[in-house]
Nucleic acid binder design. Structure first.
Lengths: 184, 184
DNA sequence: GCCAGTAGTTCACCCGGGCGAAACACCGCT
DNA sequence: AGCGGTGTTTCGCCCGGGTGAACTACTGGC
């Protein structure tokens, strides 16, 4: 299996597409860019420029892993948000949002309005870790923040929209928000 | 699940041991050393020295992956009354606190308010050993201590918050406090 | 062994502010 | 008009942090 190179963050959309197809990919992250949150075993990232050796090491690892994972990746195999509290096999597919604002997670999906899509993107890049309010504001309103409460309200709306697909936004008081899969 | 740091190639043996136990691990590869062949999804490597950001990105990714790969997932403590007190006799990797005050230990996490985060940091630096009251006061209130009782009260609150993630603060009379994993 | 002093624990209460949530208003689109 | 996306106002809860005071547990002196 070939490993696809993706320039990050320029080719976000491409990354999403390729993720869905289950192809392994290596994100090329220029200096100064924040590394993305990578949770998929078939994805890795590296700072560029990098030596050929380092790139090959990561590419090879991905290639081998993809072979190991292939039999496991049976398409949309598991149902969606498993409310039943058992049998957690391997949910491993990370949530992905494309640039039409469609968020796919575990076989189900939601369409998000532009603003909430932008917020979700920011949250997704730090899946499982805290995203500061300030960063969210910049992500949601690149051209200047609106009222102080706007973010709160949109987080609220986003929460409602994400619940059905099995994601939760936890607030870390006075710190920010944290997106994670809703586990039992 | 916590991620174990391993110096490569110095700690090859340790790496093998930990691999067997299924714990995620990050290999620290100094310049000039060849990166190892990594095929396990719960393993990653990074050139050192590296920025804290980069390390955290990889550690987080491993942590999330390990959750996805493990047979069992465990609750995330946040918000209020939430006891996920399960006692499994697992290997204890060191707890980690990030600068958003999120303390991760053994796959679960708690968000700590700023003051308690500072105290926890100090305690964590001496995990398993005594941290003096005085040092804690300086850690918690760099700009001057409040009332004498404040520390005690906050230790109490911290205790309650740490219980669900399996940590305990023991008092060493007239010496200070000692943070350690709650043994089963 | 008793007692007093001291160290540490726990509780109740206060204040201020962050955040949640509903309700409303505005706007562009169909 | 109806609707969905967005911004704003407002209300109120609850959390983070401080304080005082009651209560408990340890320690040393006799």
């Amino acid at each position: 299996m070939d490993v696809t190179m993706i320039r990050w963050p320029d080719e976000q959309a491409r990354r999403s597409r390729i993720s869905l197809s289950g192809e392994p990919r290596l994100l090329l992250v220029p200096d100064g860019e924040e590394p993305p949150a990578v949770v998929d075993c078939l994805e890795d990232w590296i700072r560029v420029p990098a030596t050929e050796n380092e790139v090959r090491a990561r590419v090879d690892a991905l290639a081998v892993r993809s072979l190991a994972h292939l039999p496991k990746l049976n398409g949309t195999g598991n149902g969606h948000a498993d409310g039943n509290g058992n049998g957690h096999g391997a949910p491993s597919a990370p949530p992905i949002i494309d640039d039409f604002g469609v968020l796919r997670v575990n076989g189900s999906w939601v369409a998000l309005p532009p603003l909430e899509a932008r917020l979700t993107e920011a949250l997704l890049e730090r899946l499982g870790a805290v995203t500061s309010r300030e960063l969210l504001v910049r992500a949601g309103w690149p051209a200047g923040a609106p009222g102080r409460n706007a973010l709160d309200v949109h987080v609220l709306r986003l929460r409602r929209r994400l619940t059905p697909v099995g994601l939760v936004i936890r607030t870390v008081r006075s710190r920010g928000y944290l997106l994670e899969p809703a586990l039992a």
